[in-house]
Amino acid sequence: MEGDEIKMEEKKNAQTIEEKQYLIRFKADTESHLHVLSHDVCIEKCPDKLCTIFCPAEVYKWEDIRMHVGYEGCHECGSCRIGCPHENIKWEYPKGGHGIVFRLG
């Protein structure tokens, strides 16, 4: 039906990671459950900064000399712990009841 189509056009299709993350409910803890063990390892041994690429929530952002960890938006998937080529990420679960809260899927 034509009328339906027009209404549907107004709906929001989340395209960027920022828009996608905005759809999710988080109950952030005050401290991070993710820790980069050594920023020097990132500088000296990891030219590609792979975690900044494959993290599905863009939690990791390289800032000149250090890795910024936006743990508040973490999906707790575990990819960074397994995928860091230098085993340089200490990964724990957030405190009970904290972190991501999926409502649907």
Binding site: E5, M8, E9, K11, K12, N13, A14, E19, K20, Q21, L23, I24, P56, A57, H75, C77, G78, S79, I82, F102, R103, L104, G105
Partner: peptide, 23 residues
Amino acid sequence: VKNHPMVRPFIEGAESAEYLAHL
């Protein structure tokens, strides 16, 4: 995937409700 010409017509006009990652 969402913008693939074979997929797009199926999701045209859809509203994103949640985004989830998992292993």
